[in-house]
Design a protein around this nucleic acid. Structure first.
Ligand code: MN
Ligand code: MN
Ligand code: ZN
Ligand code: ZN
Lengths: 136, 136
DNA sequence: TTCTAGTTTATAATAATTCTAAACTACAAA
DNA sequence: TTTGTAGTTTAGAATTATTATAAACTAGAA
């Protein structure tokens, strides 16, 4: 509620019309204290829980895609069956707890890759973020 | 064809009956010179290409699951839309080419993780295999 | 040879995601 | 202010990898 102007601006400068659905989702995602790791399913529940405005599941999918393309959130490749997203767009690593299916941030400097192979010619490394799988 | 006995034994000692379907798939997977990275789709094509014996897709799925549980192949978490498997069951890293969707092995000692965070209490690290995404 | 648990198979079901096309809306321009 | 239109939302259908179902088949112990 506090920085609605800023959010509208964020949307506009990404070429996204500030519709009430996008503003609602953006507020939910970007006005948090802590990093939020989510799936479309969890975000959809979150958005539609307090009976007020209903946002369709299709719109949640569309918005998550639009925000990802705009670089406001990023996708974490973790699970084979479901896509995970992250409001922390800085390069960083994760623990993934396979029991609870929860992601936790690891600071980038908490993992040190002291040796990395050269990519095949003609290709470059897109990213080097590590997901460390946890179990009991 | 050469070590059919060995393959039958491998199946038996895993508690898997050596059916003709499993033997065929095991021969295809385990009598290769080089590591094979595959999806169920590619393996199914491979198995069913030379008109001889037909193996149903359901059986390919069942067999891949059985071989994974037995530890004869392992799953690589790479793509969100499709499961990848690997005949190289040693701990090792991969390049994943997002254009061609191909996996390439990286020797375990080609990547050095000199600093790794401690897992949260009560949890342990299941594995530490890195997938390095490539792009043009 | 017989019996049965294990296996194969066609097919249906599931579930995340994407597509479609009609209704709606932000907003630039008149 | 009104209008025109491209962009957006939406319900529902389609897609696609995978898993479940249940009937027919078979390996192999007895
Ligand atoms: Mn999917
Ligand atoms: Mn799936
Ligand atoms: Zn994160
Ligand atoms: Zn490999």
């Amino acid at each position: 509620m506090k920085q609605k102007k800023a959010i509208i601006n964020k949307l506009r400068t990404s070429g996204l019309r500030p519709t009430k659905q996008r503003i609602l989702i953006a507020q939910n995602l970007f006005e948090r204290e802590k990093t939020f790791h989510f799936t479309v399913e969890t975000l959809n529940k979150e958005i539609n829980k307090n009976g007020s405005e209903k946002v369709s599941l299709a719109t949640v999918y569309n918005t998550v895609e639009a925000f990802t393309k705009a670089g406001h959130i990023k996708e974490i490749l973790t699970s084979k069956s479901k896509s995970y997203f992250d409001t922390n767009i800085k390069s960083h690593h994760h623990f993934y707890d396979e029991d609870s299916k929860e992601l936790t941030d690891i600071n980038y400097n908490q993992v040190k890759l002291s040796k990395v192979p050269n990519p095949p010619k003609g290709k470059k490394i897109k990213n080097l973020e590590v997901v460390i799988r946890l179990q009991k």
